[in-house]
Design a protein around this nucleic acid. Structure first.
Lengths: 244, 244
DNA sequence: TAGTGGTCTAGACCACATC
DNA sequence: ATGTGGTCTAGACCACTAG
């Protein structure tokens, strides 16, 4: 006699948990293809819609991935960790330390009118402040893991236009003598939107980690700000604190 | 003539974006009820399945919430922020500072065999170490916002059994003279599982922020560890750093 | 051409809320 | 009794992949 709570579990939840158990037990290993949606339907004796609902749960958890025309495949689950304590330093160095080839692709580098909240953060007091806005994808071993959106003050963005479009933000700044001394950061999470799903090749709705930062060259002078949106199935952030 | 990319957008994405625009524009304000799924279906001239798919997108983004038998309601979106810099300190004080009534409900407080990774973290070297495991829900104004899972060494857990089941972890510890001096933390995100969705009354698949911590009374002595799983639509974590 | 996942439909039954 | 969202079915058509 199953528990009352077990009776109530929706079929799609039961099926996704059964599949997860089989994967955890090694019945399927990373790279394996699962039976097709039709076959899973007859295996579990449910409609294809219900199978798809169950698979959607697994996709969101980063357990499987689908490829149109090919099938459902088990993912290799490993997280890349980025230290927050030295903000921005993370990406290229952290990726290389963890054995990944780090690269970027700049999607946008453009002088635009500063959005109000950006002007506030960067303390731009002119009438119609302009900033350089950069969008770039961060890759680890050819896989897109994050979308970074940075805002640079006009002067800085003009000076370093070429190098910033070639390399990682923090490394580029330090290589050009701009040392960041402090930062305010925040971390939140959102589901993958349709736009993001195309940039990061991530399934719609999968959690995305949003790392917001505002970095200062010294205590009073904000230098750059921006955010990094990373796939939560591949990334986590770490830090160490001492309390005074 | 719409853009090619616009043509390709799935109907459920188009519809959820239309609804989001109407909400952002003030056509519906927090607390308002949207038309029923049937009515939305005839409004947009799509099937109820497609409407449900569109609504699911909005639910995951924390924009609307559904109540069986009642309808679809626009959420009030405000995030509570917790400072990471003084770990654990957060919850009760941070909630009160931001104008919320903070409370907890202890679900479990039990001496259990220590899971291997917990024994390692707490440096329990005995043969079959035991720890107290606590599960509790954290409420802000009657709303469940987080599930906290803590592990206490046997001695500590026994001494503070009653107060720990009544109050917030950090406050209880400091009130009893246990001062935490350092901590290692990490932040990741996962989708809401079925169990979590029941604890937090959160929709299946919505992003959850996972705050893992290991706190020390001094540099060498780990005191407690655990994690806090919080609704990402209601919470974010902040910190400030200075680089040396 | 056949098989796969992606999208969408129309309709059924259930549980819950309200009157 | 009625209306709502939650679940599930059976089936259709499309786009992509492969042999």
């Amino acid at each position: 006699m199953p528990l009352p709570s077990a009776i109530k579990r929706p079929l799609h939840v039961v099926i996704s948990e059964k599949l997860k158990q089989q994967i955890d037990a090694g019945r399927y290993v990373p790279g394996d293809r699962l039976p097709s949606e039709f076959d899973l339907g007859s295996l579990f004796e449910v409609s294809r819609t219900t199978v798809r609902h169950a698979i959607a749960n697994l996709i969101q958890q980063g357990i499987v991935t689908t490829q149109q025309g090919k099938g459902i495949f088990v993912c290799d689950r490993q997280k890349i960790s980025f230290s927050m304590s030295n903000p921005l330093m993370h990406f290229d160095i952290a990726l290389q330390q963890q054995g990944y080839a780090a690269s970027i692709k700049s999607l946008q580098y453009q002088l635009v009118p500063a959005p109000p909240e950006i002007a506030l953060q960067l303390q731009l007091n002119k009438a119609n402040p302009r900033v350089y806005r950069q969008e770039k994808i961060i890759y680890a071993n050819e896989s897109a893991i994050a979308l970074e959106i940075d805002y640079f003050p006009q002067k800085l963005g003009q000076q370093l236009a070429e190098p910033l479009q070639q390399g990682f933000t923090y490394s580029t700044l330090t290589n050009h003598g701009i040392l960041l001394q402090a930062a305010k950061v925040s971390l939140e999470s959102i589901p993958t939107t349709y736009e993001l799903s195309e940039y990061l090749e991530a399934p719609l709705g999968m959690p995305i980690l949003v790392f917001n930062y505002l970095a200062y060259t010294d205590k009073r002078q904000p230098a750059i700000c921006g955010k990094t949106l990373s796939r939560s199935d591949w990334t986590c952030y770490t830090s160490e604190f001492e309390m005074s």
